[in-house]
Amino acid sequence: MKHFRPTSPFHRWPVGVAFCLPLIAGLAMFTAFPVGMSLYYSLCSYPIFSPPRLIGLRNYQELAGDPRFWLSVWNTFYYAMVAVPLGMVVGLLLALLLNLKIKGLAFYRTLFFLPTVVPLVASCVLWNQILNPQQGLINEFLRFLGLPAAWLPGWLTSVTWSKPALILMSLWGCGGGMVLYLAALQDVPQELYEAAALDGARAWHRLRHVALPMISPVLLFTLIMGLIGAVQIFAQAFIMTNGGPADSTLFYSLKLFNTAFTEYRLGYASAMAWVMFVLILLATLGVMKLSNRFVYYHS
């Protein structure tokens, strides 16, 4: 006679599937189905009020020759390439300072982290005024330092300074990374530093050859998450500049949103979404491949 063991995998699969039903339904309805449809739409001409009509790769061809598309790619690339590494450096700097076993660690950690919980819309409204060229906090401070009026940046009103302005604003939120780096630094065994010190390593070398390698997995993780987040930057541009001046803050997501919901060109916007997906995948894979040489996994 055959015995069914109560824990046999085959016996229990209906239970497992039943518990996972929300996930299975969610993946089917809100991921698999829309991803498939998006690919299909990207091959269609789809003005929202009439049904989609297949046009092959014409959307992608049009993208290749659309100067505003390339401008949005450049703007996004500029923002991500500067904001993410700079945010990591400042976050790491804060973490290293806090790791010196100074008084009031909890206080500083809370304070540096606080900006990251401020609702994005509220911080956009706030920074819109902080960056105001006439009365904003930053230019008033620069004026106080004695900078002549002609040198004061126009920030969000200037084609040159609009992206640096948003990068500056993003630095205010570097506390999220700081918390992670600090936690990782605190996990580095003290003996490693002592051993290095005995070998005559100075502070810089201890940082370069002990601390950084030990926290490199966390650095890689924040780099990838930061890049994925930066590439999708939207609300700041939508609320503060609406892409201007002269399209200098027309980021990829903003262009995609406008194409879909103000021009109602859903097929073209879907093609943009797919190009973005491929670019994010390539960037992630590229970073992972590069990281093999720098990241040290200790287990």
């Binding site: 809100f30 991921t31 829309p34 739409y41 879909a260 979404a273 997906f277 994010i280 995948l281």
Partner: peptide, 15 residues
């Protein structure tokens, strides 16, 4: 988790 929200945004809107 790798799929950016922009890809599913438009079909979900239609749905």
């Amino acid at each position: 988790m790798m799929i950016p929200g922009q890809v599913t945004m438009i079909p979900l809107f239609i749905l």
